[in-house]
């Protein structure tokens, strides 16, 4: 069923776009993850990385059509993961109470400029990227579904 959706010439854009998308979408996703993980070392961070991750799924949706994107990522899963991201961020902030204050950075800071450093900041970045990436995709999906349901009427 998935295969049929993938190669169905009637949903999504032309073969050229689909082929290019197949090549690039993984790279875009990886780049987003890179930006998230290096948020405490270089420009970017949770929000920017999350947006790039969301864009890779949006790219998929534009090229192959809504139905294919939903098989990869259902709206229900999106709303769960979004709440998980928010709760994760809140939990990281609450863990700070064990060090004396809300949002306190309690983990060891490590050596500057190494990947595992800066205490809870990379963890917060991951939580934010989950929230933003999934949330943005869910917004896009919701708008598209809204549009589609109107056409069917």
């Amino acid at each position: 069923m998935k295969k049929a959706l993938l190669d169905n010439p009637r949903c999504g854009m032309s073969v050229i776009v689909k082929t290019i998308t197949r090549l690039t979408v993984g790279l875009i996703l990886l780049y987003g993850i890179y930006i998230v993980l290096h948020g405490h070392l270089s420009p970017g961070g949770g929000f920017a990385g999350g947006v790039i991750i969301a864009l890779s799924f949006v790219h998929l949706m534009l090229a192959f059509g809504k139905d294919f994107a939903i098989t990869k990522f259902s709206p229900n899963l999106a709303s769960y993961l979004e709440s998980v991201g928010a709760l994760m961020f809140l939990a990281i902030a609450l863990v700070g109470f064990s060090g004396g204050a809300f949002f306190r950075n309690i983990l060891s800071k490590g050596t500057p400029f190494s990947l595992f450093s800066a205490g809870t900041i990379p963890l917060s970045n991951i939580a934010i990227s989950l929230k933003v990436g999934v949330g943005l995709f869910a917004i896009f999906l919701a708008l598209v579904i809204l549009e589609k349901s109107k056409e069917e009427e």
Binding site: N76, Y80, S83, A86, L87, L90, A93, L94, F97, F102
Partner: peptide
Amino acid sequence: NTLIPFFVIIPLASAFLISFIGKF
């Protein structure tokens, strides 16, 4: 003064917990 941030934490936590468990 540890009480103070809880005025924001409690409703936020309840909001996201409800949106997480709301479906089932």
